[in-house]
């Protein structure tokens, strides 16, 4: 018998899921701590920057984890499984809405400049670049922008994206190549690094 239990923050996602299925509340708290923020961001980005909807979707996903933890296959990566479920939820929502909202052209409040001591010029450049980037990303078709977002914003690997989107690694790589090349071409006139130097 181990006198001291392994701290939850050292457990893998898969081990935590096993504990949750046994009714371990602290394991659930740890999982929430790890993924609530990224999931809200994920849904926020894909749900037309609707914060309330993003929170609701995140809540629904964790509720699914609580009610049916056995739906997760411990042999798989939890992160991949979770993003697969999240992605399917978004797809279903798209089908439900049928019309996808246009991405907002204005600045999000979370991007507001708070530090008055930072270089204002750099901040402006960042804001400009973000605006250009979002416009270019919106111009991309969904399948390419989705792969790009999962890779660069959610931080998934090519293999994980392939599992989430249920595609082959080669297809994901090809979509990423296309999206990267397109965005680089669209934003080639905007070189903030060179401008700063």
């Amino acid at each position: 018998m181990r006198l001291i239990k392994t701290p939850y923050h050292k457990l893998s996602d898969e081990e935590i899921m096993i504990s949750i299925s046994k009714g371990d509340k602290r394991a659930f708290d740890e999982l929430y701590q790890r993924y609530s923020g990224p999931l809200v961001s994920f849904f926020f980005r894909l749900m037309w920057k609707d914060r309330e909807k993003a929170e609701d979707f995140m809540h629904d996903l964790f509720a699914k984890i609580i009610r049916k933890p056995e739906s997760f296959d411990p042999t798989r990566s939890f992160k991949t499984w979770m993003y697969s479920v999240a992605n399917n939820m978004v797809k279903n929502e798209y089908k439900k809405q049928e019309v996808r909202k246009n991405t907002s052209n204005g600045l999000d409040s979370s991007y507001a400049v708070n530090d008055v001591n930072t270089n204002v010029l750099h901040e402006v450049q960042d804001v400009q670049f973000r605006s250009e980037f979002e416009t270019s990303l919106a111009a991309l078709d969904d399948k390419h922008s989705e792969a790009f977002k999962l890779r660069h914003i959610d931080g998934l690997s090519i293999k994980e994206i392939a599992e989430v989107l249920e595609l082959s690694d080669g297809t994901v790589k090809s979509r990423l190549f296309y999206a990267t090349k397109y965005l680089a071409e669209s934003l080639k006139d905007f070189d903030p690094i060179l401008n700063r130097e």
Binding site: D126, F129, F133, H152, T180, K181, L183, A184, E185, L187, K188, D191, P192, I193, L194
Partner: peptide, 10 residues
């Protein structure tokens, strides 16, 4: 160009 874009995205 690609490098600049990716670094800025980050």
């Amino acid at each position: 160009a690609t490098k600049a874009m990716l670094l800025q995205v980050d």
